[in-house]
Design a protein around this nucleic acid. Structure first.
Lengths: 248, 248
DNA sequence: CATTTTCGAGAGCACTGCTCTTGCTTTGGA
DNA sequence: TCCAAAGCAAGAGCAGTGCTCTCGAAAATG
């Protein structure tokens, strides 16, 4: 409703935003470890103690930045799906997957320190607060939605699934995507960290002096991940996959 | 030749080792961000300025710990290969791959902060010095050696390789493993960060409230990676459970 | 034995996160 | 309209950090 509650309340959100902006600037410039409350306050022309009226501690400020970063990369992922063409065949679903992966990687390359903040090692006093779990799921949900669209149009092959993983597969399916086959959900949940492994290695310097043509390499790896999930399959002779519900 | 050059030289290596040990203790206890030169010196009964005779800066100390961590995880990987049975068939090569992955993951779970130091976000103003590149390659070399053994015994399928990745594939092959087919090298170099993506997500809390049976999930994902490279696919240690290969 | 090098100790600088107290300003109820 | 309550900025201060410099003692070297 954003009711106008007087100058004071308005000033508060403005100052809060200014603090986050300046903090994000320092984060992008120097990294999370060098982010200093005093420096932020100094840059904003206030004294450091005044900043504690807005964020009770440095960790709380970092948490706010983490939430924003999750939202930002999540929005980038969703926008990649929204702007892409409507898939018109099995191969198009795989292409959509690759496009989504590319958008996530592009965001990471454009915001390396924010990426490190959320997908790198957890910060000092790390205990992911509840606020972060919803924004953190946005990229995962985007990945799921691509696979779900493919499944609905019947262009999805079933990955193999060992017997000993069945319980976990049903658990994952129930909590993440009850409308998808468990074997697909397992492959999807496996592809998810592998995608970020590719991005992290590139971003954190592990590819230095190893992989040169990183765009092509990433596109290839993302396409292989799509294939691993069952995307892009011609599904010869298979009718639109009957939605096997995980319920027993 | 570790010639005895007097009490002073001997004391120096002893003190250096003691500093690293204590620093490693604090690293394991609190993480890299909380590692304090003064605290290390305090615990060792010396004054902080004396510590600078052994390590010119905090970053240099961290670099020493990084090198040690790379050596440690590399040794764990190599030892997993050394103690395992000699592979006697295509399936055994895949099992060796999974065992290797498991050993790397086990090391990571046992040394979370050291893992974060080398595979998490790079610390503040650090640029990986030359000293780290050789130890950093040990795990990668172990992965390569498994695939090489499989290739030599003929039990290796060729992964697909797009045309646009051919130049990069040959570059990678020339620098990493000239005796392996380029398509295999590409798949291997892709599997490498994906393996660490799986470990990092588990270790950094991304699997919380998502994946429960992590041992089984990891074993499955590692086996799929093996299959992706061309190694015979089946889960290790178990009787030849006939995995359903993806119809193609 | 004399000299050079090496080392530990201490003081000190500039910085950090954070707390507490002191006044000033805005706000909302009587 | 007035006044107490709440919100806020500022300053001082505490305990900690990485790092530099100087000084005196000890060891290695000639």
């Amino acid at each position: 409703m954003t009711t106008i509650r007087g100058a004071r309340a308005r000033a508060r959100i403005e100052v809060t935003a200014a603090i986050k902006d300046e903090a994000r600037r320092q984060l992008a410039a120097e990294g999370a470890a060098k982010l200093s409350l005093r420096a932020v306050a100094r840059e904003l022309g206030m004294v450091s103690s005044a900043l504690y009226r807005y964020f009770p501690s440095r960790d709380e400020l970092l948490t706010a930045l983490i939430v924003d970063a999750y939202d930002s990369i999540g929005a980038a992922a969703e926008s990649a799906l929204a702007t892409g063409p409507t898939p018109t065949g099995p191969a198009a679903h795989a292409a959509r997957w690759v496009d989504l992966c590319r958008a996530v990687r592009a965001w990471a390359l454009a915001h390396p320190h924010e990426y490190a903040l959320i997908y790198g090692s957890p910060v000092p006093g790390y205990t992911a607060p509840r606020d972060t779990v919803v924004p953190a799921a946005r990229v995962g949900n985007a990945l799921i939605s691509v696979v779900r669209d493919a499944h609905r149009s019947g262009g999805l092959a079933l990955p193999p699934l060992g017997e000993e993983l069945r319980p976990e597969a049903h658990r994952l399916t129930a909590t993440l995507a009850p409308d998808l086959p468990p074997a697909v959900v397992v492959a999807l949940v496996a592809a998810w960290p592998q995608l970020f492994g590719l991005i992290s290695f590139e971003l954190f310097g592990q590819f230095n002096h190893v992989v040169e043509d990183r765009d092509a390499f990433f596109a290839h790896a993302a396409a292989r991940l799509a294939h691993e999930i069952g995307l892009g399959a011609h599904t010869p002779g298979s009718p639109p996959a009957p939605a096997v519900l995980p319920g027993e």
